[in-house]
Design a protein around this nucleic acid. Structure first.
Lengths: 215, 215
DNA sequence: TGACGCATACCGACCAGTTGGTATGTTATC
DNA sequence: GATAACATACCAACTGGTCGGTATGCGTCA
């Protein structure tokens, strides 16, 4: 009756615990500085279990990127009430406010898992690079939907001369500012500078849409 | 007579070769994925020489951050002709163009050494964190001089409502966009997206100063 | 009903190679 | 002849990964 599917379900299994532990430790110390043993200890799981679920450390990293995508999708695009706002431009500006509000406490708690991982692995592991890219791309494409709608509804007042600003391009820019803000916050040991950067980002988007002031 | 200072000078010594090798390899694979042996091999120097010049791998990393600061200062703020432009706003906009032009080829050749290093070490080594921060801060403060002058001379037309944009804050924003652009370029395996992000950055700065079009 | 077969989940000792770092030299330079 | 600049040999700890084993659950067929 309660047997659900191929994946056991029910109580938190070793696989999920390993994914969680990996995300936590990699955000703290990076991918290669995090050992398989550390991940197992953190997850309270043995090494045998680790290699039962994942063929290699690299495979775990790729799977963790997938888990990270799902987590972000829920936390940022689905659960919050403001995602149901009617005006797509309001949604976009509130999205930016929301991302700013997430930035507080220790850097390992608000920084991006895939952003950290891809920095170290882009040249050495195409699997990890591609998995990270997929996660970043999923976020950008999802965000681009709202931007596209905002452009349709309001139009961009201050476009780049000559070229036209695409929704996807602006979505990636949001992401770039976030990633860069994380690095500065890590360097300074304080989230303040990151929030200040996002102020600039919101100001830029407001200027693009000719919206003098949001909230 | 030609003995210069505490640092031997003269021919390229082991210390300088180790610093160069470290910067190259860390940009490629990150700090902890780069071993002392690899650095020695790349620098064509033995391990004995390594630990003669540096007390530890961590100390090398900190020294490399210093070397990186000097390199950037020369390459970006001193050597190019455009740094002698009269109008500080022209200098600022050309600075941004210059940074965009630097982005081509492989990511390990245009990305930031300290940005990469601080990602992995901020939580585990305060020495590396502080050394990275010092390098990022030196860049931002130097850039803020031009921004300050540009504000004095031209004024910011489209300021953030309520708050005022400080030169240093905008300088850090430039840096954040660059760092974020590097991450996206690494993920995508192509510099294009990074350049596109810097287009947004230049557009933002242009809008702030009410300058419709640069070059 | 129960015994059988088989798959999944997990355990932990073990392995060969690599890690950062040290100890003890030898060689060049002032 | 002392001091800095290297070289070589070595080490204990740790690395990712393997491997033989066990415990448990589930479908099946008598």
């Amino acid at each position: 009756m309660n047997a659900i599917r191929n994946i056991p379900a029910g109580k938190p299994n070793a696989r999920a615990k390993l994914l969680d532990a990996a995300i936590k430790l990699v955000r703290q110390n990076g991918f290669s500085a995090t050992s398989v043993d550390q991940i197992c200890t953190e997850a309270k799981v043995t090494k045998g279990a680790f290699f039962h679920h994942f063929a290699s450390k690299e495979a775990l990293g790729a799977a963790a990127a997938g888990a990270w995508t799902e987590r972000a999708e829920q936390l940022i695009f689905t659960l919050p009430d403001w995602t149901r706002m009617h005006d797509p431009l309001d949604r976009l500006l509130t999205h930016i406010d929301f991302r700013a509000a997430m930035i507080e406490g220790s850097a390992e708690d608000f920084t991006c898992f895939v952003g950290t991982m891809v920095q170290e692995s882009f040249a050495s592991s195409d699997i990890l690079r591609a998995a990270s890219d997929a996660s970043l791309t999923a976020y950008a494409e999802r965000l681009a939907e709202d931007i596209e709608a905002a452009i349709d509804q309001h139009g961009i007042v201050n476009d780049i001369a000559g070229g036209d600003i695409s929704a996807l391009s602006l979505a990636y820019h949001v992401q770039a500012v976030l990633q860069g803000a994380f690095i500065l916050a890590k360097a300074k040991g304080s989230p303040e500078i990151a929030r200040d950067n996002i102020r600039h980002l919101k100001h830029y988007v407001s200027l693009l849409f000719g919206k003098e002031k949001g909230s």
